[in-house]
Write a protein that binds this DNA or RNA. Structure first.
Lengths: 166, 166
DNA sequence: GTTAACTTTCACAAGTTTTTGAAATTATAA
DNA sequence: TTATAATTTCAAAAACTTGTGAAAGTTAAC
């Protein structure tokens, strides 16, 4: 495998990993391309490199910026925008967690609270009562911890995280 | 909200949570239905309750059994199979982690190792070299830790996990 | 062994998500 | 300003995923 093949492999692997984390394939590929690029790239270069349409490139770059995984920049005298990836993996993980927390965990907690409030839940269905209780317990703790992680400094976060997981 | 509405809400919420964890919507709904049921259910009952076809029910029950999230059982004198969900949330989390580790983390580690072996990687592209190194570091540690979690007793796992995340 | 109840399979249908490309909009260098 | 390079939008197309139902395959009670 040479450098070029390595880059292609990295981009496609990161693409499929991403799609298991709520980041669509192209979005993750754009991120991967920027991650391994020494210099900022413009939309044109991204389209060219990944062989995708202008609209697709734009949408996914925009989404990456929303997630805080890509930054927009300019070069003096140039009109077009140049993009850079967040390369600090601690930050990348934090940003992804933040999005998933907001989209998944928080709505689930809200729903579980509503369900817990149902009259006679625990009289009528023992299994249901217990499951709701267990998941609530778990997700509330997870929610608090993730908040702390998100708030923490990224170096501290990654090193603690790596230590924590041994 | 009454009990019935609560159940429906739980099933649909669990369905959408699941789909962010590599479990398709129907598969997660079947799991949810079995989770909150006091007694084992047969295919017919699941089809009826979730209003899905026989084929669909069968495929998803099968997949849940493969993942270890649902168990097959029999009632004396009855020919058909009855299904029960794994209700220990520690086990549920372990099983999901196990699958994702196998499908995502392991292939990624393999690819990163191949890429690291590329001649002159670090001479030719500093950014690429650094990113591959960082991700390798992180994913190898994560891999080892997840192995330990998967191997550990589920009560120990959940309580440690809850403590760990504060 | 026969039969009927139950499970599995699979080609096709329906639903969902992603991508395209051309037109509309915006922004800036001259 | 004006010309034009660059970005954004969006409806339609393509690709992908999931679901259906009827037919084929199994299995166990009799």
């Amino acid at each position: 495998m040479n450098l070029q093949e390595g880059k292609e492999k990295f981009i496609s692997t990161w693409g499929s990993v991403g799609s298991n984390w709520g980041i669509n394939r192209t979005m993750a590929q754009v991120h991967a391309l920027l991650l391994i690029s020494n210099d900022p790239l413009c939309a044109e270069e991204i389209m060219e490199d990944l062989q995708i349409s202008r609209g697709n490139a734009n949408m996914n770059i925009r989404a990456l910026i929303d997630w805080g995984l890509v930054y927009k920049g300019h070069k003096p005298g140039e009109r077009k925008e140049f993009f850079t990836a967040e390369k600090d993996m601690g930050e990348v993980i934090k940003k992804v967690i933040e999005q998933r927390k907001k989209k998944e965990l928080e709505p689930m907690i809200k729903t579980l609270d509503e369900i817990s409030a149902v009259e006679g839940l625990c009289q009528d269905s023992e299994a249901f009562c217990k499951v709701v209780h267990d998941i609530k317990l778990f997700s509330n703790k997870a929610n608090k911890t993730l908040d702390q992680l998100i708030r923490s400094d990224s170096n501290w976060f990654l090193s603690t995280f790596l230590k924590m997981i041994k």
